[in-house]
């Protein structure tokens, strides 16, 4: 990930010094002290995750953009409440999830919520992937879109963010048993969808 405005210092050997890539914790500490650039780096490092979660949640990029904005404004305001001993990403996901829930509540009555047919922007990690793998990535993400909201968000937190069941339970404020049953249901349905997809492609 490139970060405009950031140029790592190099020492004489040409190797990066150990602090070339500051940890989230370092950046948060600096941001708390008023270091705007540090917060900017934190934002640029993690905005994609929040955006990705937002796309899973809202299934459209505009609302996902809004989620990124609301989440990071909230993160900035809450920096001093963050326990630096704990990992940042689950905390970020918790804030993002709360914001997303609020946004869903807020927009339930909004008329514009009708069409969700915007392009959902998902890519594989690199253009060098082989075609079959790229197709799988596309199919899996399309299958995800057809899952109910709670299933796709739960599976996203597990498969994409790699959160532990306990962390997902805390983030979504549901019992661990619910997390497990959601994951099982999500995977069962994902597998069925993928099988349908494979069947369709073989027939054509």
């Amino acid at each position: 990930m490139t970060e405009p405005g950031y140029s790592p210092q190099k020492d004489g050997s040409g190797a990066l010094p150990p602090d070339a890539e500051p940890t989230d914790r370092d950046l948060i500490t600096r941001a708390r002290g008023g270091d705007r650039a540090a917060f900017g780096r934190l934002l640029r490092r993690h905005q994609r995750r929040v955006f990705a979660l937002g796309v899973r949640w809202f299934r459209n990029p505009d609302d996902a953009d809004d989620l990124v904005q609301e989440t990071f404004v909230r993160v900035w305001r809450s920096l001093d409440r963050f326990d630096p001993e704990r990992p940042f990403v689950p905390w970020l996901m918790t804030i993002a999830t709360n914001r997303a829930k609020t946004m869903v509540e807020r927009t339930k009555s909004a008329a514009e919520r009708e069409e969700l047919d915007e392009r959902i922007p998902w890519d594989g990690p690199s253009p060098h992937e082989d075609a079959a793998r790229a197709a799988l990535v596309r199919d899996v993400n399309r299958a995800m879109e057809n899952l109910p909201e709670e299933l796709r968000v739960t599976l996203h937190l597990r498969s994409v963010e790699g959160l532990a069941y306990r962390e997902i339970a805390e983030t979504l404020e549901v019992p661990i048993g619910t997390v497990m049953s959601r994951l099982a249901r999500a995977r069962r349905r994902l597998k069925e969808r993928l099988a349908e997809h494979a069947g369709e492609e073989e027939r054509t």
């Binding site: 490139t2 994609r48 955006f51 990705a52 796309v55 990029p61 996902a64 922007p121 998902w122 890519d123 594989g124 990690p125 793998r133 799988l136 990535v137 199919d139 899996v140 993400n141 995800m144 599976l155 996203h156 597990r158 498969s159 994409v160 790699g162 995977r187 994902l190 597998k191 993928l194």
Partner: peptide
């Protein structure tokens, strides 16, 4: 199948330019 789907999801990223 699950592992494959997980790997595909984990390697997905929102398509956007820098």
């Amino acid at each position: 199948a699950w592992q494959e789907a997980d790997a595909a999801l984990a390697s997905s990223s929102p398509a956007r330019t820098e």
